Deep mutational scan, measured.
Amino acid sequence: DESNKPILLPNESQSFERSVQLLDQIPSYDTHKIAVLYVGEGQSNSELAILSNEHGSYRYTEFLTGLGRLIELKDCQPDKVYLGGLDVCGEDGQFTYCWHDDIMQAVFHIATLMPTKDVDKHRCDKKRHLGNDFVSIVYNDSGEDFKLGTIKGQFNFVHVIVTPLDYECNLVSLQCRKDMEGLVDTSVAKIVSDRNLPFVARQMALHANMASQVHHSRSNPTDIYPSKWIARLRHIKRLRQRICEEAAYSNPSLPLVHPPSHSKAPAQTPAEPTPGYEVGQRKRLISSVEDFTE
């Protein structure tokens, strides 16, 4: 099969070098950035008060330690540790928490760990991170309901609301924008112990962030949302095809390698009803078989 044979790379090609550099910018793992907010007593309706908090309760602090690993920003190499735009020179604080497994990295933009500057009256330095995160974990210690939209931002799609209760338990629920209701189930609340709260809140936030990324990708319907490693695979396959075309153009005697095509017509299947918005969006999480067989 010609399409699977190794090909020689061009010795000097600026377009090839640019493509390789672009490939280096696509990590081999999925990345997520999640905002974390603490809401104190009497702050449920005040964005400024929430963003001005420099610490929270003892249970909130224990919750943070379970979310991930504490890292010092100045020691991080952005090409190895995903920071979601946090500055490593102290502009966004000294520490944050991050978490990773074999296929993804997540960083938490924690408002109480970011510096509260006197010259920044409206807390814009914090909002440029927190307001651009799709998902926020809100530790609501106010005793009042927290409403979506209290923290203004164009991309605040989903809130994971943590409400501490007695007996070391917590109520965990989801809020989302109306255009996200087909992807996020907000109907079920959970009672979770303090011990298990970081794991549950983190998983709910990661799932909500993946759904938000799919939702946000609708602005470019021709580019369905893939995982990062599938995006790398697609980029490599496009690069291979372009090299083959350039080689055939410079030397017409060489065969032009095309991806294999299936001449056999697909079997006719009964027509199915058109899937609704929710089903269609969830299918976009699934990769096409052509990603692996071309």
Rank of each mutant, 00 (worst) to 15 (best):
R123V: 14
G56E: 01
L165P: 00
T186R: 06
F199T: 03
A205N: 00
M204L: 04
L9A: 15
L239H: 09
S250F: 10
L23I: 08
C89Y: 10
A265F: 07
L197E: 00
V184M: 11
L174R: 01
L256T: 14
L8A: 12
R238M: 12
Y60S: 00
P270S: 11
T31H: 08
C76V: 09
D179Y: 04
S44H: 10
T274A: 10
D101R: 01
V20H: 07
P27L: 04
R284I: 10
N170H: 10
I243W: 13
S13Y: 07
E246Q: 10
V135W: 00
V160C: 02
M114E: 04
Q14R: 10
G40V: 00
P259S: 13
E12R: 04
G56P: 02
D75P: 08
K33S: 13
S28D: 15
Y277E: 15
L48Y: 13
L48M: 12
D194I: 00
Q203S: 05
F108Y: 04
Q268R: 12
S212W: 03
Y60K: 00
H55S: 07
K80I: 05
V257D: 15
D118Q: 11
K147D: 13
Q268M: 10
D179G: 07
V81L: 08
A248D: 12
C169P: 01
P115C: 05
Y60L: 00
S288K: 11
G66C: 02
E72K: 10
D179Q: 13
L130T: 08
E41A: 06
P27T: 04
K190T: 12
L73A: 14
V289E: 13
V158P: 01
P6A: 13
R234T: 07
S288F: 06
L256S: 15
T96A: 11
T31R: 09
Q268V: 12
Q203R: 01
T96H: 09
K190F: 15
Q281T: 13
R232V: 05
T61W: 06
S13P: 08
Y167M: 06
I191Q: 04
S52I: 01
D79S: 06
N196L: 01
E144S: 09
K178C: 12
E12C: 07
L254Q: 15
K264C: 11
R242T: 15
E181R: 04
V119T: 13
S288V: 07
E72D: 09
L130D: 05
L254F: 12
L165E: 02
V184L: 10
C169G: 05
W99P: 03
R59W: 00
S227D: 07
I110P: 04
I103L: 15
V162S: 01
N4F: 12
D102T: 08
L254S: 15
V36N: 00
A267M: 09
H235F: 09
R202P: 01
D92C: 05
K237R: 09
D133Q: 04
G149K: 05
E54H: 05
T274Y: 07
S173A: 08
C98D: 05
P27F: 03
K121I: 09
A49S: 06
E91M: 10
E62K: 10
S250P: 14
I50C: 03
D79Y: 03
C169Y: 07
H258F: 11
Q203M: 14
G149V: 03
F292P: 13
M210L: 09
C169Q: 09
R202W: 03
A208T: 03
A208P: 00
M210K: 01
S13M: 06
P273F: 10
A205W: 01
